[in-house]
């Protein structure tokens, strides 16, 4: 019944609003740093860091550590696997909504 299962594409990792937000932002931006993500998602440092770690461990995002002057500047970008998972998730959401209608 896998073919008919509307939940097939949905990914548990994207259930969380912040992780979904991070992925949405990274899909349309080549790379983005921690502070910009924080500003756009309106979350605290600790909260964001935890979710970023989850996404990194899943292999959906890449982390690049660099320096701007003396300050560390950590930027994030989406991986191929992340793009696929995100697209599948959106397709899944759409199917769900159509299915329930």
């Amino acid at each position: 019944m896998a073919a008919n299962n509307p939940i097939a594409g949905l990914n548990k990792i994207f259930d969380n609003r912040i992780r979904l937000g991070v992925m949405s932002i990274l899909m349309v931006n080549e790379e983005i740093n921690f502070n910009d993500l924080k500003q756009m998602l309106e979350v605290t440092d600790g909260n964001l860091a935890t979710h970023l770690q989850t996404l990194e461990e899943s292999g959906f995002i890449k982390v690049q550590k660099g320096f701007v002057g003396r300050k560390t500047n950590t930027t994030y970008s989406v991986t191929k696997a992340g793009q696929k998972a995100f697209n599948d998730h959106i397709t899944g959401l759409e199917k769900m909504i159509r299915g329930i209608k």
Partner: peptide
């Protein structure tokens, strides 16, 4: 879905 759209545009 709305959240995704908003974030993609806003960012």
């Amino acid at each position: 879905l709305q959240d995704i759209r908003k974030m993609m545009q806003r960012s």
